[in-house]
């Protein structure tokens, strides 16, 4: 308070001895501050268009598990509205809870998989993935006969399949029962559901990508930009924790097509597989195919030594 501010340079306030120095300096400082503020506003200008797309409701939205059914209802309608505005597509988004008495499991027959990547393609379409990056939750590795080492394999093969001396290994989220990705998330934006599916609340994730670093199977994907999906290609059958179009800046992953499987259907990758390599179902159902495979085939899981306890099994006939 002892330093003269601009308001103190009014006549009723006596100036200190070195007044001229002070006033000049104060004026310069004020000028500097104004210029600085203007420059800062300019620097931050790109944020303006971005923030106009973010709604207050979105900003204040609570965690998935904290929302009442009514709040959830509002959120779903808002998300549908946003999809209509931003993608021109009329979609229906549901909140599907896990079903009682269901534990999903998946098994893949490496002896018959021929590396056609139909599963990856089906996932791409079913889950409204970004068209420009050709994203998919599934990556198919072409592996060298006689080795389980991924370093000897490649996901970037580009020739007719199956190639001699190779076998094929699709990898997606294994829905681990002891998932390191869930442990590390600082905000509980990802968790394991009752039926075994590990899900992400795309409206709660802060995009720190810690889970991506923690997953030992490269199963998670980050939305490096806003996904591009042409209006006519948007899959309108959507669920909140599943295939609704993800916002930019959040993490996503395979959810066993819960928008289908929780309604008794098969996941898109299973339906698309031409060789019958994929066996999906409820492990608690004694008559299910998955149960039969687990009981009768010699199955194994990836990197069992890490203790992640996957629910996705591989076997050779």
């Amino acid at each position: 308070m002892t330093e003269p501010t601009e308001s103190q340079t009014t006549p009723d306030r006596p100036e200190p001895d070195d007044e001229t120095g002070f006033t000049r300096r104060t004026a310069l400082k004020a000028l500097g501050a104004t210029l600085g503020a203007a420059a800062f506003a300019r620097a931050m200008a790109p944020l303006r268009s971005w923030s106009s797309e973010q709604s207050m409701d979105e900003f204040l939205q609570q965690h998935y598990k904290e929302m009442s059914p009514e709040e959830m209802e509002q959120v779903l309608r808002r998300l549908e509205q946003e999809t209509l505005e931003q993608y021109g597509a009329d979609v229906h988004i549901e909140d599907l809870p896990p079903q009682e008495g269901v534990q999903f499991g998946y098994a893949l027959n490496l002896a018959v998989c021929n590396g056609c990547r139909k599963c990856a393609e089906a996932c791409h379409k079913e889950n409204n993935h970004d068209r420009s990056t050709n994203n998919s939750y599934i990556r198919v590795f072409e592996m060298e006969q006689g080795s389980l080492d991924f370093e000897k394999g490649t996901a970037d093969y580009d020739h007719t399949v199956p190639a001699a001396g190779k076998y094929y290994m699709p990898v997606q989220c294994l829905q681990c029962d002891n998932p390191p990705c869930v442990d590390v998330c600082p905000v509980e934006a990802t968790w394991k559901e009752e039926d075994g599916v590990v899900v992400v609340d795309y409206n709660w994730c802060i995009g720190c990508r810690y889970c991506e670093a923690a997953c030992p199977y490269h199963a998670r994907r980050f939305n490096w930009k806003k996904p591009e999906v042409p209006t006519q290609e948007v899959n309108p059958v959507q669920a909140y924790l599943a295939n609704r179009i993800r916002p930019a800046g959040v993490v996503e992953k395979c959810h066993f097509c819960l928008h289908k499987t929780r309604k008794g259907e098969m996941p898109a990758c299973q339906q698309a597989c031409p060789t019958g390599a994929r066996v999906f179902g409820n492990m608690l159902d004694p008559d299910s195919d998955i149960r039969w495979v687990l009981e009768n085939k010699r199955v194994y899981v990836l990197k069992e030594d890490l203790g992640t306890r996957p629910r996705f099994f591989y076997f050779f006939d």
């Binding site: 600082p186 905000v187 994730c205 802060i206 995009g207 990508r209 916002p247 930019a248 959040v250 993490v251």
Partner: peptide, 12 residues
């Protein structure tokens, strides 16, 4: 600056 969604910082 590493966060994909800095607007959701309050979740932390």
């Amino acid at each position: 600056v590493d966060l994909g969604r800095p607007d959701r910082f309050w979740h932390l």
